[in-house]
Every structure is written in structure tokens, then in C-alpha cells.
């Protein structure tokens, strides 16, 4: 299958998944107890609630509501946060909240992968050694510490006790890069520890399996250095699971950083999702969660495509 056909096929599939996912989301919200219009403006009269129902499409049944939302989304109208006496555009909120979340996720992934790849390779190569046992124990322990607890502990030690960094806040990298990176240290570490642990373990397992392949034995027997065998012949075929996991995490983390964002006061998308759920801002909630599901599908599809390109085995299936 050539790349263009594969791309089209994946895009169609991706769109279908996004539509199904967002419709199911609408259905779930439709089924939640309580009238959303009443929850948006608790003291509003029936008239104002009626206006909101009409504006959001809530008065048109589940399909009407979904179509109203989707058609507006496609034209770039992401909906509104309804206030008692006005509104705020979700687009406005996204512009503000998406960059901090993306930076946070990106840094966390970079840190996690930078640590996980060498750790996973060495642990696998030295399977059963003291290094492997220590690394496994440390990683297993660190993944067992809940993210929020780690965040608070880090804050207490590095911000309060040692005073090296600030415990809360966010700065744009385009305004004050130094402050940006300094403020990101604790939140990124809080997120990266868990990721590093899971990535290392995934890579270690795959590398151990690959090391037992005949072609690896062949490469070693040809006198190629261990380092070259590891990086050139073992790492690439062993990285599919890691890549898939990292891609899925990208999608998941977009909405899943809520605890870290809340603790470190980072004005990100996770915080906004939590706020929109708490205040039952149905349209905003739907848009933001749809964005997360889109991110899931997008990154998953991208990694699928990349795997197809990088790993010939996946595109030359015999069955």
C-alpha cells in the first residue's frame, strides 16, 4: 500500500473515530442529571434558560444538539462559556490554555524519553545485573508514588525548604525564558517520573525480546560492537511499543495534567476541563474533551503512520 493511500485511509478512519467519540460524549452529557441551562444560570428565569437552550442546541434533541455543536466546530466556532450576563469564547480560552499544557507535556516527554531510552537499553542489555535490579526497583517505586503526592513533596523540598524554585506560577517562554524553564522544573519532573518508569519498563521488555532474535546474534558474531548492535539493530525494532505508548500519552496528557496544573497553578487545558465540568459549562466541556479525544486519535494515527514507515514488518503483513 503506498503512503498516500495509507494516509487517506487513516484520515478517514481518524475522522470516523472522532465523530463517534464526540457523539458518545454528547450522549453522555445528555444523560447527566439536571438541566444544563438551569445549571449555567441557576438564578436565571425560564426565559434566559430558554435562550441558552436555543443557542446551544439543547432544545433540539440529542442529534440536533450534536449536529449544532459539530457544525459550529467545523466552522471554527468552538462555543461559549456562558456567564450570567455575557459569555467568553472557548477559542479565547484555548489560545490561553493550550500553550502551557503543550509545553508541559512536551518537556515531560522529552525528559522521560531522554532518561528512559538509555535506562531501558542498559537494563535490558544487563538483564539480571545489579544495575538492572536497582534501576527496576527505583523505577517501580517511583511509579507507585501518586503524581500529586510527588508534586507536593517536590514542592516542599525544592521550593519551600531549599528555595531553589518557585512553588507555583507560569511564565511564557517568549516573555522570560529563564523564568519559564525554572517554573517548569517541578511540574515537568512530577509528570516525567511516572512516564520514565513506564517507558523504561516497556523498552526493557522489548529489547530483551529483540536481543534473542537470530539477526542480533548474527550481527554480534560479525564483530559489530555491542553499542552499535544495541543502537542500530536492537533499539529501532524494539521501539514500536515505546513510540505507541508515548504517542498515546501525548493525547492523554493534554487533558490529564489537571492535578499537576492545579498544584503548580499552571493555566492549562486540564484545569479548564475541570472548571468546565465543575461549573457544568456543557458546550465548553464538550469542546475541550473533544479536543483531547482528537489528540488521542491524531497522535495514535501519526504513530501508526510513522511505524509503517520505520518498521517494514508492519506494512508487509502476510495475513
Amino acid at each position: 500500500m503506498d503512503i498516500a493511500r495509507l494516509l487517506v485511509k487513516r484520515l478517514v478512519l481518524m475522522s470516523t473515530v472522532v465523530v463517534i467519540a464526540t457523539f458518545l460524549l454528547s450522549l453522555l452529557m445528555w444523560m447527566l442529571p439536571g438541566d444544563p441551562a438551569q445549571l449555567l444560570v441557576p438564578n436565571g428565569t425560564e426565559i434566559i434558560q430558554k435562550v441558552i437552550r436555543h443557542e446551544t442546541g439543547l432544545d433540539r434533541g440529542i442529534f440536533g444538539y450534536y449536529w449544532h455543536w459539530l457544525s459550529h466546530m467545523l466552522t471554527g466556532d468552538f462555543g461559549k462559556y456562558y456567564l450570567n450576563g455575557g459569555y467568553r469564547e472557548v477559542t479565547e480560552v484555548l489560545k490561553r490554555c493550550l500553550p502551557p499544557s503543550l509545553f508541559l507535556i512536551l518537556y515531560a516527554q522529552i525528559v522521560a524519553l531522554t532518561l528512559a531510552i538509555p535506562l531501558g537499553l542498559i537494563s535490558a542489555y544487563k538483564e539480571g545485573s545489579r544495575f538492572d535490579r536497582i534501576a527496576s526497583t527505583v523505577l517501580f517505586t517511583s511509579v507507585s508514588v501518586p503524581g500529586f503526592a510527588l508534586a507536593l513533596i517536590l514542592s516542599l523540598i525544592f521550593a519551600v525548604q531549599l528555595g531553589w524554585v518557585d512553588p507555583i506560577g507560569y511564565e511564557s517562554p517568549f516573555g522570560d525564558p529563564w523564568a519559564h524553564f525554572k517554573l517548569m522544573i517541578l511540574p515537568v519532573t512530577s509528570l516525567a517520573v511516572g512516564l520514565t518508569s513506564s517507558y523504561t519498563r516497556l523498552l526493557r521488555t522489548d529489547v530483551i525480546a529483540t536481543l534473542k532474535e537470530d539477526y542480533v546474534t548474527m550481527a554480534a558474531s560479525k564483530g559489530i560492537s555491542n553499542r552499535r548492535v544495541l543502537w542500530k539493530h536492537v533499539f529501532r525494532p524494539s521501539s514500536t511499543t515505546l513510540l505507541t505508548s508515548a504517542a498515546l500519552n501525548m493525547g492523554g496528557l493534554i487533558g490529564g495534567t489537571i492535578i499537576v496544573e492545579t498544584i503548580f497553578v499552571i493555566p492549562g487545558i486540564g484545569y479548564e476541563i475541570a472548571y468546565s465540568i465543575g461549573s457544568r459549562q456543557v458546550v465548553a466541556m464538550q469542546t475541550l474533551i473533544a479536543l483531547v479525544s482528537f489528540a488521542y486519535v491524531f497522535f495514535n494515527t501519526t504513530v501508526d503512520l510513522l511505524t509503517n514507515i520505520t518498521d517494514p514488518r508492519t506494512r508487509e503483513r502476510r495475513v
Binding site: 514542592s155 528555595g163 498544584i263 497553578v265
Partner: peptide, 12 residues
Amino acid sequence: SQRAAAVRKGSV
């Protein structure tokens, strides 16, 4: 706890 930490540290 973070609010308290922030005022102790001088972040706020």
C-alpha cells in the same frame, strides 16, 4: 499547602 508554600517562599 501550595498557597502556604508560595507565601513562605515569596512567590506570592
